[in-house]
């Protein structure tokens, strides 16, 4: 094997694979880095969702203050800034849920060799579904 190629920080199966797989290795965040990214994103979205739970219950307390207070909140919820906040929230919920399913599978010993693919699958699916949800919100508004 070429010394330069063998010294590249790519895993063995990638080094032995076809040219496009080698090309993909340039952008391949293989192994620990994906596990780390998945873990950090899980923690960040988890902490964010805990804060959101408190925020959600606080906002819902406007129900106890009557219709006027609720109507004022609904008007605020239709503002562009709030829709941007919704997008971040929906991504957080989707990623935390989908990656949570990935963590469960890995914990049961299923798909551990495909953990990186599962991470990117969860990440990309979260972005796609967030875009679909935001489009639905904008069409409803």
């Amino acid at each position: 094997m070429d010394r330069t190629l063998s010294s590249l920080p790519v895993s063995e199966h990638v080094a032995r694979a076809s040219w496009w797989r080698r090309a993909a290795a340039w952008v391949d965040l293989h192994g620990r880095r994906e596990g780390w990214l998945a873990f950090i994103l899980m923690r960040v979205t988890g902490i964010g969702l805990v804060f959101y739970l408190f925020l959600h219950l606080t906002v819902l307390s406007t129900l106890a203050r009557g219709r006027q207070a609720w109507d004022a909140f609904i008007a605020l919820a239709r503002s562009p800034l709030f829709v941007a906040f919704d997008a971040v929230l929906i991504f957080g919920m989707l990623y935390h849920g989908l990656n949570g399913l990935r963590v469960i599978l890995l914990g049961l010993g299923v798909g551990s060799r495909r953990q990186a693919v599962l991470f990117w699958g969860a990440f990309v699916l979260s972005i796609v579904l967030t875009a679909v949800a935001v489009r639905m919100i904008l069409m409803m508004g």
Partner: peptide, 30 residues
């Protein structure tokens, strides 16, 4: 893990029932 799996179901039901099947996406007070 179990509560997480249960949540994926309950959260989808919560979101659909409170937003996606509601005209305008947000319920009025009544």
């Amino acid at each position: 893990a179990l509560s997480g799996i249960l949540l994926t179901v309950l959260l989808v039901v919560h979101m659909v029932a409170n937003h996606f099947v509601v005209e305008g996406g947000l319920r009025t007070y009544e």
